[in-house]
Design a protein around this nucleic acid. Structure first.
Lengths: 220, 220
DNA sequence: AATAGGTACCGTGTTTTCACGGTTTTTTGG
DNA sequence: CCAAAAAACCGTGAAAACACGGTACCTATT
């Protein structure tokens, strides 16, 4: 079986990568690129003005509207669009969050072109692409699921205030200053921090910063 | 004047971007891509086995051997190769360090393809490409040069121990643990930290982590 | 031999961060 | 409407981080 006339759309803020990717995809038999977007919001707008793709390639780390949000939006509004997540990082949390958000596959930006082609074909023909990387991470997540208080259980439950807190924690502000900015008491902030340390299996603010960057919560 | 037969080589650990970039460059009149490398060390090896390019496109953040080191090596051993730095971040320090290391231009990964072409042509024909971004950052750096103890003066003087310290500071280790690992006293580590805070115009360990990531000192 | 610069080291004190074990208030679901 | 989450808040103490102002030693230069 040979795929044909697959309409692809790409969202990534790195225009050079995006454009190169588009060029590459256009050179593949059976694929065309109908539009490119700088970020999720741009993607949604072009969806309305340009048309509906069969496959969406979504970067996770994007300004304005990131890969998680975009994926969630597409899942709810255009469930037929197959989503392939594109990321620089191979961490478990990001993979699980992205799959939960509706992605049918997760590939790294250092993927080999030949493997990339396989991923595209797989998503179109089989409906998914679960690489060894993804499988391994998932197996690991499952195996640690029944550990007490394990992160996976609460992982995707980061609420808006926690996200806001994390973003501020990725600056040189003290917790006192963060509390003021969020109109909360320092103790509450302490609580957020303690909860997050527990949930995310980290011990220090530096760990929180690294987590935030790897998961696209902050863009630096 | 029209450029012709310009041999380009690329070093970037993101194969997808690199490959797309290579495809894009090959589609441009007068340019060819003679090899692609995963990182600086790979680049140097291919230099010996494949041949000498006219232009090197170097990512800053790479494993094994980063853009600064690679650029420095090329400057010393192959001064005729024109170097164009490729980065995700637009921070002043990275730009200055890269230009000091021998780069003839500095472009961001979110550059428009048309602008990218201009950059290539400019480096080949005029010997350099200083975008508005680079110029602005340089002007700013110059204007603050005579401020007392300004960072630019000491900026590129990060020595090996400081680099090692920074890398460890980007983990969840305490300074005590870092001191033990580096076989130094905690006071010495305190001194490193204080010096770096002063040099880099930061106030907290979080600031140090962000600096390290933006400047490719650590790869996450 | 004096000077300067870099590296390693140190003491003291303050502020911030983190850990622990709570209470009150608001939302939410049966 | 009432119980159970959850969100916000709090006190205390210990540990870590940060600020400041130093000393000792080594090397290279003049």
């Amino acid at each position: 079986m040979q795929v044909s006339n697959i309409r692809v759309a790409i969202a990534d803020d790195h225009k050079l990568l995006r454009n190169g990717l588009a060029t590459h995809i256009r050179s593949l038999d059976g694929y065309s690129v109908i539009f490119e977007a700088d970020h999720g919001k741009d993607f949604v707008e072009k969806l309305l003005s340009v048309g509906i793709p069969d496959l969406a390639l979504l970067d996770i780390n994007m300004p304005v509207m990131d890969g998680y949000e975009t994926s969630m939006y597409l899942k709810n509004n255009y469930p037929d669009i197959k989503i392939l997540a594109l990321s620089m990082y191979d961490n478990e949390e990001a993979i699980i969050r992205m799959l939960k958000s509706g992605a049918k596959g997760y590939i790294l930006k250092d993927i080999e072109p030949v493997e990339f082609k396989i991923a595209l074909d797989s998503v179109i023909m089989k409906g998914f692409f679960y690489s060894e990387l993804v499988t391994n991470k998932l197996v690991h997540a499952i195996n640690t699921l029944d550990e007490p208080d394990h992160k996976v259980r609460n992982l995707l439950a980061l609420n808006d205030r926690e996200i806001e807190f994390i973003k501020l924690a990725c600056t040189e502000m003290t917790y006192k200053e963060i509390a003021d900015k969020m109109f909360l008491s320092v103790r509450t902030i302490d609580g957020y921090r303690d909860d997050l340390f527990e949930k995310l299996n980290i011990k220090t603010r530096v760990g929180l910063v690294l987590y935030a960057i790897k998961n696209g919560i902050v863009t630096i």
